[in-house]
Simulated scan of single mutants.
Amino acid sequence: MIKLTMFKGGNIINSGDHFRDAGILYRKLYVKQYETQISTNDEFIITLSETKKGVHVIDCQKYKMTGRQIHLVLPGQSSHFNFLEYTTAFQIKMTQKNFEKLRLSLPFDSRLYKDYPVFGLSEKEFQKLNHEVEKIGSELSRYQPFLPIIDSRTGTTFHEVIRLLTNRISNLEDYTLPVVLNRFLNLIEMYYKQEHAVAFYSSALNVTKNYLAGLSQQYLQTTSRDLINNRILKEAQHLLSLKSSSIKATMLELGFEDKSTFSHFFKRHLKMSPTAYRNIKIER
């Protein structure tokens, strides 16, 4: 567990609490006339804001502060806030890996979160979410936080946010993934360490490989093979960044039979060997 006590920039009255562990950051800020720096995020961010004055810019699009609101920022999006009055803001940040796990549990296209990144809340809804977020911060602040509780509360908060969002959308069917594609994503999460071939998944779903490829391209703008490979690659990157996990252990964990095949796979996607990647991560 890491407690962060400093936050640069702006006119901060009190930096509040900042705790990070297990790929989750909880942050509570007391701010006045505060502007964050423009940055491209590599995490998924949920922000609860009470201020009625200010603006949040996401990918150059301005969203006015109007009181109790939720703000969502996806990995890869640029974002910065400009608060114009004293306020309290609550944030939960999760790594892209954690976000993808939660996202795949819902049958919605990621366009949903990009098209509706900011929406208002009733006082009751705000207080309920605030309660969940502060519980996450409370657990993270412990000397030895219990990770299953953090995972459970983070998942609950994420699903509650999406429930509130989808209840406000009249054209939800435009963002709902086909049943087959949603089942495909869930199967990848279940079997990517053992099954790397598209044929396994198409057979399990009782569809052709071409049909699965068409769905992946139409709704997710990628290939079905890349969906599998990207999941394998993300886990490989995670394991190789751990001092306790060797290249051989990573290779075996992800279902590769020999080191050369794993190295070729890794280099083809990241343009560097597993050894080079591991050395960079461990040194940091």
Score class of each variant (00 low, 15 high):
Ile2Pro: 01
Thr5Ser: 00
Phe7Gln: 02
Asn11Asp: 07
Ile12Arg: 05
Ile12Trp: 02
Asp21Lys: 12
Ala22Met: 08
Ile24Gln: 02
Tyr26Ala: 08
Val31Pro: 09
Glu35Arg: 15
Asn41Trp: 11
Asn41Asp: 11
Ile46Leu: 14
Leu48Gly: 13
Ile58Gln: 02
Lys62Pro: 15
Tyr63Trp: 06
His71Tyr: 09
His71Thr: 14
Ser79Gly: 06
Ser79His: 09
Asn82Thr: 14
Leu84Gly: 03
Leu84Gln: 06
Met94Gln: 07
Phe99Asn: 07
Ser105Thr: 12
Ser110His: 03
Asp115Arg: 14
Asp115Gln: 15
Pro117Asp: 15
Val118Met: 05
Leu121Ala: 14
Gln127Tyr: 10
Lys128Tyr: 08
Leu129Glu: 02
Ile136Ser: 13
Gly137Asn: 07
Ser141Gln: 08
Ser141Ala: 11
Tyr143Val: 12
Asp151Cys: 03
Arg153Asp: 14
Thr154Cys: 10
Gly155Pro: 00
Thr157Asn: 11
Thr157Tyr: 06
Ile162Ala: 01
Leu164Ile: 07
Leu164Phe: 08
Arg168Met: 10
Leu181Tyr: 09
Phe184Ala: 07
Ile188Val: 12
Met190Arg: 11
His196Phe: 13
Ser202Pro: 01
Ser203Phe: 00
Ala204Trp: 00
Ala213Glu: 13
Ala213Asp: 03
Ala213Val: 07
Leu215Gln: 14
Gln218Met: 14
Arg225Asn: 10
Leu227Trp: 15
Leu233Asn: 06
Ser245Asn: 06
Lys248Leu: 08
Thr250Ala: 05
Met251Lys: 11
Glu257Met: 08
Asp258Glu: 14
Asp258Tyr: 12
Phe265Thr: 09
Phe266Thr: 01
Lys267Cys: 03
Arg268Ala: 11
Lys271Ala: 15
Met272Val: 05
